[in-house]
Design a protein around this nucleic acid. Sequence first.
DNA 1: GAAAATAATTGATTTACGTCAAGTAGCTTG
DNA 2: CAAGCTACTTGACGTAAATCAATTATTTTC
Lengths: 221, 221
Amino acid sequence: MAEHVCAEIVPIFQQLNHDELLKVSDLVKHHHVSKGEVILSPDTPSQLVIIAQGAAKTYQLSANGKEQLLRVLDAGNFEGEKNLFGVGNDELYVEMLKNSTYCSIETKDFQQLLGTYPSIALKLLKSNAEKIDSLEKQNQLLNHDLVEQRLATYLLDLAKTNGSYQLTLPMKLKELASFLGTTPETISRKLKLFGQENLIKQNRHDIEITSPDGLSKIKDA
Amino acid sequence: MAEHVCAEIVPIFQQLNHDELLKVSDLVKHHHVSKGEVILSPDTPSQLVIIAQGAAKTYQLSANGKEQLLRVLDAGNFEGEKNLFGVGNDELYVEMLKNSTYCSIETKDFQQLLGTYPSIALKLLKSNAEKIDSLEKQNQLLNHDLVEQRLATYLLDLAKTNGSYQLTLPMKLKELASFLGTTPETISRKLKLFGQENLIKQNRHDIEITSPDGLSKIKDA
DNA sequence: GAAAATAATTGATTTACGTCAAGTAGCTTG
DNA sequence: CAAGCTACTTGACGTAAATCAATTATTTTC
């Protein structure tokens, strides 16, 4: 894996331009390690690690001191994004499952970089703020107890984003169901219901909102 | 309202130290405005506004072009935190309900400041990362469909934070219920159930987890 | 363009949990 | 310590929505 490929993978770096990405890539260190080696723990420096070749497991120690497997990292997976911002998860361990190579960026190097190139910090602040925004939105969605409310909220939101009451569901019902915390069947039924109440006209995934006010009322019920 | 009081109010500034806060306060502008005046809209510069005296309403234009009231801002309330990070909500309006005074920080001034004092940016990055973390946690909680799962997750989390299986519920059931997206009654019943299944011993708000594994099983069911 | 796989709809049944209501326990206040 | 308040518990009941299952569309594949 070439140097600059490590950082590119990590979502937080994906809004950086070429030059900025190069600066980040300069911080990357490469390592060869053996099976069983622990590369991230309370005893290692705070860092982001990216598996280049091989595999690793991440686990934390549960309250009774037992090792609780969280997930397996294959080549291309990474762990510790938040470490770079100084948010530590003290109980997190990453241990190699085979002889592997990995890349790392240390928190202290990264923070120094941010001091030198504030434009990077600004972009990261922006993308984090966007992330908070969308998480808050989804939280709010899930806090509506009725599926009807969540679906109505979703449809109105989509209409606003589109700037039109003519809209097409951008994903399979199964996925939408998971997003709204329900099942495809229920969504299908609710859409039908909305149709019967003349709030929408529906043909498969194509939907026209005929009564935004009606939907709004349901949303806030 | 004194100059430096404006910025202090806003959560994102609350982890700044005295000096940093002063730098931010230097950016604050003060304004007197009349009832009906719009201080935040797509036509105003991107900024954070804090109501010092008086009141305002925030609204957005819903997809059908109608004004949809979001909330009323009284003295001490603010709007537009995210603007400072360049995340705009283009459809958001703030309009004064009476003659009022307000403080503002413009995005461009703020971003310039971040360039000059990277330590501020670093702190904000950290606190945003923490916020993302906790939002993701709660999202994950709410995505469990069964109350039992959410409650088990919560109890195990609390135990880990405490470092002990001996724990005390830190809030009223009513509040916990809202956090877990359920009702006090259901929580009461579920705790009783856990007791009958010998997973916990419960006396009022004092709880001892006697079978972490049992709880884990429920959590992941 | 037929066959196969995947998606969506619809119906029947079950169930988790919210709601309503009544009672009990534990604090607070005078 | 009585009176009152609030938090919690427990029961009975209703309901939204999940689950199970069967049918019908739609898309994909060869």
